[in-house]
Design a protein around this nucleic acid. Structure first.
Length: 876
RNA sequence: GCGGACAUGGCGAAACUGGUAGACGCAAGGGACUUAAAAUCCCUCGGCUGAAAAGCUGUGCGGGUUCGACUCCCGCUGUCCGCACCA
């Protein structure tokens, strides 16, 4: 009997979700004896509704979770909400709601949406970072970090976002603009709380090499960000006649000590103490420094500013020649917070120094000679030479390589002393700065300290945690509502009892996401942030999946925070994520109407017009221009609402399409055709399984042809399972999809051959086994359809609780194999030989081929290369 | 400027550590079924020659290594990404 009923995704998905729920199938126990597997996708910000990027991210994670569960692992697959942050305050301002109301309403909506995807999540472990039961522990860890010396409070030049009216970390400034607001970032001096991530710069750098299951790209990005450089700090003696009172030296930092004989000036940052001192009796210099500071308000302007300097009049002595003096400039391109805030300039071999020397007519002395030039005559022309070569014009360094010269200079300067200390000291510098976490916002985790006029900065006693956010706040004016709250910040000092003031800054929301993966391992424990036995059992996360946009910020902070947790006893490891995968974006075509306005895909219709795709408005029929393919965004109106897709086609179709076609690390193009293709496969698979279920055997069907068919079916099924195993492990979901199609095609073809014919019991058994394998293969990707098909085959249990099929690898071993035969590297034929045939036998078989005989034309072959079981190449 | 990645049919792509290029899907074209449409099923589908068998050619471009190169090496072009006065 053939069935014509369609698979009803809406009904089936609801039914199976309820079944999984009722049986608490995805509730994970910490004391389960099976080996653990922790798979985590980056938790969402509760912005309002889920988008296709979420669907892709969580579909991938769910494939891994369901697959690992089937392979016998105790899988932890939790979900939570990165719930603090600016958008909640913006919404509060716009809609006169409270950030908490807005946030929790969004969470409720998005939780329902995620549930409709049929994800195998342990919802019992759900956390929201804005909940006092979460941020209480974060405050506790802040205090522990403070005690352990991992936190600093210092005045620093900070990145100020004038729109969001808050401080940004360096990592949050992109092209001189705020990462969220897009406003031009200004520089301001503020007293801030800092996590001392730079203390771990070396360790964070070293450990990257051991993160073998991280994408190379991410490791490289972090390496560049940490920016380790090896160099020499050199102390120059000031010429006594020109030095400001009380000053006798300048310490500079260089990575090119080998070019010391090419020095022509020393330059200081405008904020350098010596610059300030020199300007005291020098109004012109003072004016120059002021000008630098003015330009320094916007990062973008700094980047474009011309190189400018001002001669301080101070002179320094060259460390290798007491008779050689160099001028000291204040220059706008020297950064106070890198190295020592002072450099020596070697114009011949550095672009910036070259520009500077050209502008101020300073000497340009060549000291490095390229290997293809004559050292006696070589001199740089209108551009500096920055590549490798041999040292020239440098006395005792002449003829040395750059590396050798660096070493020689360091060695010599270490032995000379100035003011009782060595002139030269080897020094490693990092680009990485400390992580400023103070934010002048309401909707964040309060920093649990109290400022007392008598006692200074006093930690809030742990028993008083959490420091809860007050509910009664207003957002009618810019700035921090906590700061202007009538009562909240006024407290008594926990130490002396006198009137004191709460810290009104809250923590950067990246702190919240720096340890949520740890809290998931035991989100119930109340007196500690983590339960050590739980965290030690579960961490590190085996597979972490998320967007490349977090390659630096979130991932670097989490790596630091985990080290901090280790130091304070809250964790036992350094690296939180063993395997990392960064998935690509979901992109879609864009459309514009005649007026150039963006039009959403839902408003148009696409038809073929003589081989060209033409779009027009559904409402008026007016033509619409089909534009480039872009990341889905509200501004370009090229988004597709997951709810619409799930409502129309079902979650399985959406998941299947997200996993098919494009490799997961690449962008996937969302197309209506593609979704329909996925939907067709859902229906096809359902028909296929139903047809297999309906087969009935007849007694007299056993024959040799049937035996062949049984073997063919079994091979196809077992091969598919083996391949999917391999590809899921490597997260190559697009290939998993292809294997499923291939097996489905094979089964369908076999059914067509046997249509209206008698079939044997053996044949039916093979077909059922193959169908079951096929269901198992698709189950991690399309879990609802898989359950429905599983039940259709008469199973009483769930596929979600059925172990992964055991593939028989011996089925793949053939006694005879067919291998290609090449002539001069071009395929010319095939030969079938015994699997274990020796090379001589294979050669004989190849030479017997007609095509080879023709190619040889009676002459003996020059050479025959036999790669056993692979290929034969005849060289003529 | 520095660093990195990528480049394969009309499209998304596959090809394990060098060994039959284009699996699988989408689109397109043709056909079957139908009063018709949808759905479904069958066939074709890199280019050129050919009725076919088959042959030649083909993985951005130019070289090289090799019996054999999408894969390795050198040079170029293009696209994308990260960092950007870091001494």
């Amino acid at each position: 009997m053939m069935r014509n009923e369609r698979y009803n995704a809406r009904e089936a998905e609801r039914k199976w979700q309820k079944t999984w729920d009722d049986r608490e199938l995805f509730r994970t126990k910490n004391n389960d004896p099976r080996p653990k597997y922790y798979v985590l996708e980056m938790f969402p910000y509760p912005s309002g509704r889920i988008h296709m990027g979420h669907v892709r991210n969580y579909a991938m994670g769910d494939v891994v979770a369901r697959y690992k569960r089937a392979r016998g692992f105790n899988v932890l697959h939790p979900m939570g909400w990165d719930a603090f942050g600016m958008p909640a305050e913006n919404a509060a301002m716009a809609n006169k709601t409270h950030p908490a109301t807005w946030t929790y309403a969004n969470i409720a909506t998005m939780r329902d949406q995620l549930k409709s995807m049929g994800l195998s999540l342990d919802w019992h472990r759900e956390i929201a970072t804005c909940d006092p039961s979460y941020y209480k522990h974060q405050q506790r860890m802040f205090l522990d970090f403070l005690k352990a010396g991992l936190i600093d409070r210092k005045t620093a030049k900070v990145n100020w976002d004038p729109v969001d009216q808050t401080v940004l970390a360096n990592e949050q400034v992109i092209d001189g603009r705020g990462w969220r607001s897009g406003a031009l970032v200004e520089q301001r001096e503020l007293t801030q709380w800092f996590f001392k991530i730079s203390d771990y710069a070396q360790d964070l750098d070293d450990a990257l090499d051991r993160l073998e299951r991280w994408p190379e790209k991410v490791r490289l990005m972090q390496k560049n960000w940490i920016g380790r450089s090896e160099g020499l700090s050199v102390r120059f003696a000031l010429d006594a006649e020109t030095a400001p009172k009380g000053e006798s030296e300048i310490e500079i930092y260089t990575t090119r000590p080998d070019t010391l004989f090419g020095a022509s000036f020393v330059a200081l940052a405008p904020e350098h103490p010596l610059s300030k001192k020199a300007s005291e009796n020098n109004p012109a210099l003072q004016a120059f420094i002021d000008e630098c500071r003015k330009i320094g308000t916007a990062q973008e302007l700094i980047d474009k500013a011309e190189k400018k300097g001002f001669d301080t009049g101070i002179r320094v002595t060259h460390p290798f020649d007491p008779n050689w003096t160099l001028p000291v400039y204040v220059a706008n391109f020297i950064l106070m917070d890198y190295g020592t805030g002072a450099i020596f300039g070697c114009p011949a071999h550095d672009q910036r120094d070259f520009d500077f020397a050209t502008a101020y007519h300073l000497p340009i002395k060549t000291v490095v000679c390229p290997s293809d030039q004559d050292p006696k005559t070589y001199a740089v022309g209108d551009a500096p030479y920055v590549d490798d070569g041999k040292i020239i014009n440098s006395l005792f360094l002449d003829g040395m390589t750059i590396t050798a010269a660096k070493e020689e200079v360091a060695k010599r300067l270490e032995e000379v002393s100035l003011n009782g200390k060595p002139v030269g000291t080897r020094k490693v510098n990092f680009r990485l700065r400390d992580w400023g976490i103070s934010r002048q916002r309401y909707w964040g985790c309060p920093i649990p300290v109290i400022h007392c006029e008598v006692c200074g900065t006093v930690p809030v006693p742990i028993k008083n945690l959490p420091v809860k956010l007050p509910d009664d706040v207003t957002f009618d004016v810019p700035g921090n509502p906590l700061d202007r709250h009538a009562t909240w910040k006024h407290v008594d000092c926990p130490q002396c009892g006198k009137k004191a003031r709460r810290e009104t800054d809250t923590m950067d929301t990246f702190v919240d996401s720096s340890w949520y993966f740890a809290r998931f391992t035991d989100p119930w424990i109340e007196d500690q942030p983590t339960d050590r036995s739980a965290i030690d059992g579960w961490l590190p996360v085996n597979q972490y999946i998320g967007g490349i946009e977090h390659a630096i910020l979130h991932l670097l902070y989490s790596r630091f925070f985990t080290r901090g947790m280790k130091k304070t006893g809250h964790a036992g490891i350094d690296e939180p994520f063993d395997g990392l995968f960064t998935q690509g974006m979901v992109v879609h075509e864009t459309y514009r109407d005649a007026a150039g306005q963006w039009v959403s895909p839902a408003e148009i219709e696409i038809a073929m017009d003589g081989g060209d795709r033409k779009a027009k408005l559904l409402s008026s029929g007016a033509p619409v221009e089909i534009g480039s393919i872009e990341k889905m965004s509200k501004s370009k109106r090229n988004t597709i609402d997951p709810d619409d897709i799930i409502g129309t086609y079902g979650a399985d179709t959406a998941r299947w399409f997200m996993l098919s076609d494009s490799p997961p690390e690449r962008d996937v193009i969302w197309t209506e055709d593609g979704v329909q293709g996925a939907s067709r496969f859902v229906q096809r698979l359902w028909r296929l399984v139903s047809d297999v279920a309906d087969q009935t055997p007849s007694d007299n069907a056993h024959d040799a042809a049937a035996e062949d068919a049984v073997l063919t079916i079994r091979k196809a099924a077992h091969r598919a399972v083996i391949r999917v195993e391999d590809d899921v492990e490597r997260l190559r979901f697009n290939r998993c999809v292809a294997h499923a199609y291939e097996l489905a095609n094979a089964l369908q073809a076999e059914l067509a051959v046997k249509k209206d014919k008698n079939v044997s019991g053996e044949w039916i058994a093979a077909m059922r086994e193959a169908a079951e394998f096929l269901i198992a293969i698709i189950a991690p990707m399309m879990p609802h359809l898989a359950e429905e098909c599983w039940a259709e085959l008469g199973h009483q249990n769930l596929i979600a609780e059925t172990p992964w099929p055991k593939a028989d690898r011996s089925l793949m071993v053939e006694s005879d194999i067919t291998i290609p035969v090449q002539v001069n590297g071009k395929k010319r034929g095939e030969v079938t030989v015994a699997r274990d045939a020796d090379n001589a036998t294979v050669e004989a078989a190849v030479l017997a081929l007609e095509t080879i005989k023709t190619a040889l034309d009676g002459k003996p072959p020059r050479k025959i290369i036999v790669v056993p079981q692979r290929i034969v190449n005849v060289v003529v």
